[in-house]
């Protein structure tokens, strides 16, 4: 058991190093510091301005090999952007934003709260709606109710999320005037009014895909032997659905759910910028518009880190619950 956990942790750490490698290739090798400087201050500045910009933002070292040191010195390979990038990211010293010099870590801490206040209720309500609806559909399987819900799901899946947001904001916020169109407040009594539209739209936008997915999960369980046994001993159909089918179908659903949790911290890029919620998604949009590479790098890194952590936790929980996973060997899979 311990060996499995250690192996899994080691593989997770290797993946983190791999993600940092990808980020280095993208943000230092493909878009190198010169290019970043050009995008930040424009094309018609003097060479000294570029050098100054690179020094101010800590991009003035060579990428992989520092030719200022001679062959024998180890500094030739350690005094470089590559090593510095790994060092900083692994020790969580993210430095300052490239565009407005605010410390990135503070921005991320400030953004996590608003992001969670949107994504967490959205996630919980969406999950409950999807599970309840798909259970009902599985209960009415191969009737007209089942078929019409499937058709609605198919139609719902085919609409772009951008359309959901624009249309929903227009319909609920502008025509019906139920809730304010956009804005945010930390006061818990007001916050619900601001979050109502994004949550409503978010649930609507996602239920098509999830209901279809969970329906197949439920239908796979419905034909199992234990369900027939339960019916044979005289259970009502509703009791069978809730006590037997739902319980056994929860495992694959929970796997999906646990893997989705890390993404909650990242927030929703579209929703946050449309509804004026100052979370991590809005921070991402700001970083894109401002060519703020250091912030973007950090957000991608944190997102990947959370995902890897979530995966490790899921795998370890699974190996505790199911001995086959442990004996099967192999990391992940």
């Amino acid at each position: 058991m311990l060996a499995y956990i250690v192996r899994r942790l080691a593989f997770g750490f290797a993946t983190v190093l791999g993600v940092l490698g990808v980020l280095f290739v993208l943000f230092f090798a493909v878009a190198d510091p010169d290019e970043m400087a050009i995008r930040a201050i424009g094309e018609r500045a003097s060479p000294e301005t570029y050098t100054a910009w690179k020094r101010n933002h800590g991009y003035d070292k060579p990428l992989i090999i520092n030719t200022e040191h001679d062959w024998t010195s180890i500094d030739r390979y350690t005094d470089t952007l590559l090593i510095e990038h790994y060092e900083r990211m692994l020790s969580f010293r993210f430095g300052r934003s490239d565009s407005d010099d605010t410390p990135i870590w503070t921005r991320i801490r400030e953004g996590a709260g608003p992001s969670l206040s949107l994504t967490l209720p959205l996630f919980v309500i969406g999950l409950l709606v999807a599970v309840a609806l798909s259970l009902a559909v599985a209960f009415f399987r191969s009737t007209y109710i089942d078929r019409s819900v499937l058709v609605i799901c198919m139609l719902g899946m085919s609409v772009a999320s951008l359309i959901y947001i624009i249309g929903g904001q227009y319909l609920i916020g502008k025509l019906l005037r139920w809730f304010p169109i956009s804005g945010f407040d930390t006061d818990p009594s007001v916050i619900a009014r601001f979050l109502a539209i994004p949550i409503l739209i978010g649930v609507l936008a996602e239920f098509g895909g999830t209901v279809r997915l969970y329906r197949t999960v439920f239908l796979e369980e419905v034909n199992r032997d234990y369900v027939r046994t339960a019916r044979a001993k005289g259970c009502g159909e509703i009791r069978v659905m809730i006590h037997h089918v739902l319980r056994n179908a929860l495992l694959p659903i929970i796997t999906n759910v646990v893997l989705a949790i890390p993404f909650l911290f990242i927030g929703s890029i579209l929703f946050e910028s449309f509804f004026g919620i100052p979370g991590l998604g809005a921070l991402t949009v700001e970083a894109i518009n401002g060519n703020d590479f250091s912030t973007l790098r950090t957000i991608v890194y944190i997102g990947a880190l959370l995902y890897i952590l979530g995966q490790i936790l899921t795998d370890i929980c699974y190996s505790l619950a199911d001995p086959r996973v442990r004996l099967g060997g192999g990391a992940g899979g």
Binding site: A14, L26, Y307, Q311, G332
Partner: peptide, 21 residues
């Protein structure tokens, strides 16, 4: 290893990072 590295970066963020770079 390459697959799990790419898969562990949230899709949209990877997309944005790639296009920005």
């Amino acid at each position: 290893f390459v697959m799990s590295t790419l898969a562990s970066i949230p899709n949209l963020l990877l997309l944005i990072a790639l296009i920005m770079a």
